[in-house]
Design a protein around this nucleic acid. Structure first.
Lengths: 325, 325
DNA sequence: CTGTTAGCGCATTCAT
DNA sequence: ATGAATGCGCTAACAG
């Protein structure tokens, strides 16, 4: 592969002039411009972007941390991020770290290394304190509510969405409400647990610790939920299921057991996945794609606009009433 | 951010020595090694990887081209790729190009640019001829059958899998077999169409052009398929549906219309997605995650092992009999 | 409008 | 075991 110097020689100009046409700068006579373009074509030249990255101190790349790309929640966020990245001519580093703190640290280190200009964290194992340290090296946005830190944030109000869902169930006459989550200590789970407790207390209902069901992430977990409920002495009459694929797994498995939704259990799902529409699951649209798009745009704006303060942006969820309650 | 020279000064050694401890080389006295490590810690030094990439002519990054990450098929392949990337300490550039030739070209250009050391193409719009040109700049693997070119390939024999499915339907007494695909001119669709024609001809059945249904990619497409079938004068009695989410969309929508599977239409899906298990869909496991893993490993081996010839690797599909036929 | 020159930060001969 | 010097390929003052 030839370099810029060889192109300069071949075209009979200086490297500066080559660099200028490469970067579309003005002040190049069309004669020289054409000579350079001809040399580039003839020698099959292509710029070595690593040299550009070195000298500019930037890579036009942002990283995305997520536990697993093969899950609707993350793939949908990523889709939104990628859409904006394409539009803004940015590259994406996909970092599937499986909630392993050390892998997350390696990615943060890449920000420091200048392999990426900014970072989006869809979900995390590390503490905010550990993450914030790296904000000195480039803008970081999280897909969760964060405040009082040098970190940007795009989020849905999970507390309010849970409150909405619980009140809806209550109005429909449900008094025995349980809910499922994946990780008990995730930020969203904490908000939801608090909403569960607060809202039922306000309504005069009962928030039961043994009705907080964790470890539910995917289709098969939803299917397994049926057995767990059947084994209970005291069964709930309504379920909030955080993730429509879990809700779908539950509903489809329930049918096989002769259990009816909403008859035996009312169900509210989350994310408004395509499957929820097909099964008539009442759900809450968390606007995942837009979260991804906004996260990208915020990070991108901070990279371009010379930093500025971190941004916090709340997107409003949407309650979608169908027929599972 | 300090650079290697400042660390050298702070530690009272030369930059060479710093570089040596950075890269874990031998022949450094422990006294100097510790001095360097201390200086690194004290000045909060981090290597600028762009300089390393420039001088080494490599980036420890491979790119992945796919049309859309928010689809089971691609997310599952990507999961496999990412698993191996993590294990081998490689970075992944996710390039969601939406079947736009120009975007695919930009990614190929990045290979030439030395922004990535190799490339995996999950699905494509460009011709093999256009792609092959770039194999001079780094190993490229496609997730489809390719031969006689300077390109590696990991694939399932779609011809054989279709043949298997059609014969199975035939044995079950089905004589009016239709099938759905997404893109009519994709390589896999061509194989499938040929298998459809050949196999039915061999069995003495009828391959009908109007029973080749294209444009079916996702859940809602499956749901829409119901209407399309109902509008037909002559209806098939069996469907091969390439993608379990499409099959699921069809089955769930069919139920709402009082149509029975397998009673009115037998269905065979593809990919062995979790939903197929929940709905009892007979399907063909295309081993997507392993395709991703193998694609990564092949590209990685070629990068490390100084090229060598392109590799072609066929993975065997698995027919999974359930209750939709 | 054009060219000379000086780095960007690092790895790596080649001496010693 | 260590260091001086060279260069990876490019951009951007600066000087004309």
């Amino acid at each position: 592969m030839p370099n810029i110097k060889q192109i300069a020689e071949a075209a009979g100009v200086s490297v500066t002039t080559v660099s200028r046409v490469l970067n579309g700068h003005p002040y190049v006579s069309s004669a020289k411009r054409e000579a350079v373009e001809e040399a580039i074509r003839r020698l099959n030249y292509s710029r070595n972007m690593n040299a550009v990255h070195l000298i500019k101190g930037m890579t036009q790349t942002i990283g995305v941390i997520l536990p697993n790309i093969n899950h609707y929640y993350f793939a949908r966020i990523m889709e939104g991020v990628a859409k904006q990245a394409l539009k803004n001519n940015y590259q994406l580093m996909l970092c599937q770290t499986g909630y392993r703190p050390n892998e997350e640290r390696k990615v943060l280190e890449m920000l420091r290394n200048k392999q990426m200009d900014g970072l989006i964290i869809c979900s995390r194992a590390l503490s905010l304190r550990d993450i914030e340290v790296f904000a000195d090296y480039g803008p970081i946005a999280l897909c969760e509510r964060v405040s009082g830190r040098n970190l940007s944030s795009v989020y849905i109000d999970h507390y309010a969405s849970f409150q909405t869902a619980i009140r809806y169930l209550w109005e429909k006459g449900k008094r025995r409400i349980a809910f499922t989550i994946y990780r008990r200590n995730s930020p969203s789970s904490r908000s939801r647990l608090k909403a569960y407790t607060d809202t039922l207390a306000a309504l005069g209902g009962q928030a039961r610790e043994d009705w907080v069901l964790d470890g539910y992430l995917d289709w098969e977990d939803g299917a397994a939920l049926v057995d767990r409920l059947l084994a209970m002495n005291e069964r709930p009459d309504a379920l909030l299921i955080t993730g429509d694929q879990v809700a779908a797994g539950f509903i489809l498995s329930a049918r096989l057991h002769g259990i009816e939704v909403p008859g035996d259990f009312a169900v509210i799902g989350f994310d408004n996945q395509p499957i929820s529409s097909l099964l008539g699951i009442t759900t809450i649209d968390n606007r995942l794609s837009e979260i991804g798009e906004r996260a990208f745009s915020i990070v991108h704006a901070q990279i371009s606009g010379g930093e500025g303060h971190p941004v916090s942006e709340e997107l409003s969820f949407q309650f979608i009433e169908r027929s599972s309650v």
